[in-house]
């Protein structure tokens, strides 16, 4: 049927022609409106996410925009079928674009810190990725807020002092001396020794810092140094020399002063000591005279010690005469041994 014959038949049936016209008009309007609505919707959708689409699906975005233009053009020129076709292409392209831009990195990120603007509290300031609150998108130039910028802070996550390069001052050994002043930061020691433990090399109980003889064991009363002329045992203060007196008298000779001074020092330092001073003679001469001399000499020694500061109450003096010999009185050597003064510790 040619076009002319179609027109002729329409004129023959005006009602049919009207119905057809109405249908065509309605369907055409509906199509045009649908296309307009559809393209506008697509455009709005793309406009809202244009940057991410542009970043990650540029070709699909371009195809969608071209197809939308064509759909509009065809629709405005009364070609609904072509318009629909273009519209479908546009939809497909938008779908493609959407798929391609789902990745988080496609979202707009103006400060280029890898955190999309929608999640970035500081969209114009790049996050400093340093394992500290990196998810908020804001830079944290001083993580621990200690006033030392992270770039200069050796402990950016622990508050510290500028003097300690941003690190907290610690006391690792817990000795009360902070590490920055502690010469031995992991070994406890007193502040007086710069935080280092005080040594006692000679193990005499006197710390090296107070020991005048750190390598020689000596009592505390002698400042850590050993006595030169005496020694202290459990029950006696032993003398390394004899106490010298004037012959047959109780006057102490000068050469014994140093040794007796050590004895005095030992008794003063051992405040619980009670000492009995015993005088002994050899067997030469009269017994009574010997007894008297030994008592006088013991008294003389006691007097000397008291003069050196020893409490008189802790000292007693006894003369034993020739009663307690240590050696044979028949020889000179034996008699020399028997002439003596002893310091017996009777209480301690």
């Amino acid at each position: 049927m040619t076009g002319i014959s179609m027109l002729q038949s329409l004129f023959k049936y005006p009602r049919a022609a009207l119905v057809l016209l109405a249908f065509t008009t309605v369907s055409g309007c509906a199509t045009s409106s649908e296309i307009e609505t559809g393209t506008t919707t697509l455009e709005k959708l793309m406009a809202a996410h244009r940057e991410s689409l542009y970043n990650c699906s540029p070709k699909a975005l371009a195809n969608a925009e071209v197809a939308i233009s064509l759909a509009r053009f065809e629709s405005s020129h009364g070609r609904p079928v072509a318009a629909r076709t273009a519209m479908e292409k546009a939809k497909a392209a938008v779908r493609d674009a959407w798929k391609g831009s789902e990745d988080r990195k496609c979202l707009p990120d103006h400060d280029a810190d890898g955190i999309p603007d929608v999640e970035d509290k500081c969209p114009l300031l790049p996050e400093d990725i340093d394992q500290f609150q990196d998810e908020d998108g804001c830079p944290d130039p001083d993580n621990d807020n200690d006033g030392v910028k992270d770039v200069d802070d050796q402990c950016p996550l622990e508050a510290g002092t500028p003097a300690n390069r941003g690190c907290p001052i610690k006391d690792q050994d817990g000795d009360g001396v902070f590490d920055n002043e502690d010469a031995c930061p992991i070994v406890p020691g007193p502040r007086s020794n710069r935080g280092c433990p005080v040594q006692d090399a000679d193990k005499d109980g006197v710390l090296d810092s107070e020991d005048k003889c750190p390598n020689e064991a000596g009592p505390a009363e002698n400042e850590g140094c050993p006595y030169k002329l005496i020694s202290i045992t459990n029950d006696q203060i032993q003398l390394k020399q004899k106490v010298f007196f004037q012959t047959a008298k109780s006057v102490i000779l000068k050469e014994s002063f140093e040794m007796l001074d050590e004895v005095a020092m030992a008794i003063v330092q051992h405040s619980r000591f009670k000492v009995r001073i015993e005088g002994h003679t050899d067997s030469k001469g009269n017994d009574k005279a010997n007894m008297k001399l030994s008592q006088a000499r013991a008294d003389s020694v006691r007097k000397y010690l008291v003069s050196k500061g020893v409490d008189s109450l802790v000292l007693t003096s006894v003369g034993r005469g020739e009663d307690v010999p240590l050696d044979d009185n028949s020889t000179e050597a034996g008699r020399a041994v028997n002439r003596r003064v002893e310091f017996l510790i009777i209480e301690q």
Partner: peptide
Amino acid sequence: SSQKETSEPAPAFPSEAPGTGGA
């Protein structure tokens, strides 16, 4: 560069909008 060296601050993104001459 921001993905590789995230600790270094990146320069600001260009202010003009991309995609001139759209449909």
